[in-house]
């Protein structure tokens, strides 16, 4: 085990972990930030999506040793008072069914909107391709992203 200083949601944390531990499990099991979900462990489903220096990454496949000084944002730290335009749009469209994949969906969408203020359908499809939803809420996710783009 080694000690790592990590910056998560604007706060510094010291955690003790094996270097190969994916940041996902550090968040969930060490820091009790359980909003980031385990889905597949191999970066195929997107449930574990977080931001590392503003980019969407799959936290299940990013070891703690690679984080260094980078700024990590999880769903818990996406906005103050849950007022990110995407969170508001998710409310408007009542997007979730089971809800398990939604944190990852929102984090992928937030990274997209940061780069691209008015994404086309094709841009959204491409940015969201890595996020699975077995409940089939894709139409609402897409509609909510468009609403958020309009309102931000």
């Amino acid at each position: 085990m080694e000690n790592y200083n990590v910056n998560i949601n604007g706060k510094s944390h010291t955690v003790s972990a094996d270097p190969d531990t994916p940041i996902l499990w550090v968040l969930r099991d060490e820091l009790n930030l359980v909003g980031t979900k385990y889905g597949c462990g191999i970066a195929q489903c997107g449930a574990c999506t977080i931001h590392v220096d503003g980019k969407a990454v799959r936290s299940c496949s990013m070891p703690i040793s690679s984080i260094g000084e980078k700024e990590v944002i999880t769903i818990e730290g996406l906005s103050e008072n849950a007022t990110h335009p995407l969170q508001n749009a998710w409310r408007e469209h009542d997007v979730p069914q089971c809800g398990y994949c939604q944190a990852g969906q929102i984090m992928s969408a937030a990274a997209l909107l940061k780069e691209n203020k008015s994404p086309t359908d094709g841009d959204i499809d491409a940015a969201m391709h890595g996020n699975l939803c077995r409940c089939g809420t894709y139409l609402r996710i897409k509609a909510a992203i468009k609403t958020a783009a309009k309102n931000s």
Partner: peptide, 29 residues
């Protein structure tokens, strides 16, 4: 009438709602 999912706020902010989010005193994985 349209009523939003009662767990919506928890889902949108990553609060512990699901089985895998269960954390108890003395629990091992």
């Amino acid at each position: 009438t349209d009523r939003r999912n009662v767990d919506l706020e928890g889902i949108l902010t990553g609060k512990p709602l699901f089985g895998l989010d269960t954390r108890k005193e003395g629990m091992v994985h």
